[in-house]
């Protein structure tokens, strides 16, 4: 499944809208300016996903999974390297959590909430353009290896061959930038739906 350049641009815009909303929510939540932007976006198969992530992340990962259902269904993941997750939790709470460089339970909750805000903002933007309701499971945080993450990404088999929409994200706060990845795994059926909706919007 290939997306045209125009579709990729539109997808980029969709993620941008979602992340902009997420940044506003996070700024509101923390009382400090939080920027979330999207330097890169790509679409790939699950086999490719692992290879490409291997190039950009190392060590343990902190991931927040949120399954979503409705006409568009799949798994959405916010992926951060463990150390970056510690930094992010620490910065977001003004140095209140992340004792001794570890994600304790409070810090995990903080990351879960950040994941929830980012994932639901982005998927909400998808829902708007598709004019469908997207419903979510309760988000779960995992500390796992890349292999572990690949195994924990689950989608219903009736959605067809899974594809990954991967948005490299950058959280900017306190003059620092923390990079992470937002991965939306959907079946080819959902991807076609998205592609179709984007084409309609673009054609209009």
């Amino acid at each position: 499944m290939n997306l045209s350049e125009m579709e990729t641009d539109a997808l980029n815009e969709l993620f941008n809208i979602g992340l902009h909303r997420a940044a506003a929510s996070l700024s509101d939540l923390t009382g400090q300016r939080v920027d979330v932007d999207l330097p890169r976006l790509w679409v790939c198969s699950m086999e490719e996903l692992k290879d490409r992530l291997l190039e950009v992340v190392t060590g343990d990962l902190a991931t927040v999974h949120q399954f979503f259902g409705g006409p568009m269904a799949g798994d959405a993941v916010l992926l951060l390297e463990y150390e970056k997750a510690v930094m992010l939790a620490d910065l977001m709470t003004g140095g209140e959590v992340a004792l001794g460089g570890r994600l304790d339970q409070s810090a995990r909750e903080v990351i879960t909430e950040i994941g929830n805000v980012v994932l639901s903002s982005c998927l909400g933007a998808f829902g708007n353009v598709l004019r469908v309701a997207v419903s979510f499971s309760v988000p779960r945080i995992h500390i796992e290896s890349l292999d572990g993450m690949m195994r924990s990404v689950v989608i219903d088999s009736d959605q067809g061959v899974p594809y990954a929409l991967v948005a490299a994200t950058r959280f900017g706060l306190s003059e620092l930038e923390i990079s992470g990845y937002l991965i939306v795994v959907i079946g080819v059926k959902s991807l076609e739906l998205v592609s179709q909706a984007l084409t309609e919007r673009l054609g209009a």
Binding site: V97, S106, E113, G115, N116, G124, F136, V138, P139
Partner: peptide, 11 residues
């Protein structure tokens, strides 16, 4: 409105 919401104690 249909969203799932997490409230972390720290916030």
């Amino acid at each position: 409105e249909g969203e799932t919401v997490v409230l972390a104690h720290r916030f």
